Simulated scan of single mutants.
Amino acid sequence: MANVKIFTDSTSDIPRELTEELNISVVPLKVHIDGESYLDRVTLSPSEFYQKMGVVQELPTTSQPSPLDFAEAYREAIQEGATEIFSIHLSSALSGTYQSAMLAKAMIEEENPDVKIITFDSKTVTYAAGIIVVAVARAAKEGKSLEELVSLAEKVRRTEGLAALVDTLEYLQKGGRIGKAAALVGSLLNIKPIISLNDEGEVYPIDKARGKNKAVSRVFELLQEKVPAGPVSAAILHADRREQAEEWLERVKSIYDVKEGLIVEIGPIVGTHAGPGTIGCLVVPLEL
Rank of each mutant, 00 (worst) to 15 (best):
K5P: 00
F7L: 00
D9W: 00
T11W: 02
D13S: 00
E17P: 00
E20Y: 02
L22E: 00
N23E: 12
S25W: 00
V26M: 00
V27S: 01
K30H: 15
K30D: 13
H32D: 03
H32S: 07
D34F: 05
G35I: 02
E36P: 01
Y38F: 14
Y38V: 05
L39Q: 13
D40G: 08
T43V: 06
T43M: 08
L44F: 05
P46L: 03
Y50P: 03
K52M: 15
M53N: 11
V55M: 12
V55A: 13
Q57T: 15
T62L: 14
S66M: 09
F70A: 03
F70N: 01
A71P: 09
A73V: 06
R75Y: 03
A77W: 01
Q79S: 15
E80F: 13
E80P: 12
G81I: 13
T83P: 11
I85C: 09
S87H: 06
S87C: 07
L94A: 09
L94K: 07
G96Q: 10
T97A: 10
Y98F: 15
M102P: 05
K105F: 03
A106E: 15
I108D: 05
E110P: 01
K116Q: 15
I118E: 02
T119F: 04
T119P: 03
F120P: 09
F120A: 08
D121Y: 02
K123W: 06
V125E: 07
A129R: 05
I131D: 06
A137Y: 01
A139D: 06
K141P: 04
G143V: 09
K144H: 10
L146N: 05
E147K: 12
E148L: 07
V150I: 14
S151V: 06
L152Q: 05
A153K: 02
E154P: 00
R157A: 05
R157Q: 11
R158I: 00
R158G: 01
T159H: 09
L162E: 02
L169N: 04
L169A: 06
Y171Q: 10
L172M: 12
L172I: 04
K174E: 08
R177S: 04
G179S: 15
V185I: 15
V185P: 05
L188I: 11
L189W: 13
I191W: 08
I191P: 05
P193F: 11
I195F: 08
I195E: 08
L197A: 08
L197K: 01
L197Q: 04
G201H: 02
G201R: 04
G201N: 04
P205I: 11
D207L: 06
D207C: 03
R210G: 11
K212P: 00
N213E: 14
K214S: 13
R218Y: 10
E221M: 07
E221T: 11
L222S: 07
L223R: 06
L223M: 09
Q224K: 14
V227F: 09
G230K: 10
P231N: 14
V232I: 12
S233Y: 14
A235W: 08
D240I: 08
E246T: 11
W248V: 03
W248M: 10
L249K: 08
E250T: 07
I255F: 09
D257G: 02
K259D: 12
E260D: 15
G261M: 11
V264F: 11
V264E: 06
P268N: 14
I269T: 15
T272W: 08
A274R: 07
A274M: 12
G275Y: 06
P276Q: 07
P276W: 11
C281K: 03
C281E: 07
V284S: 09
V284Q: 09
L286R: 15
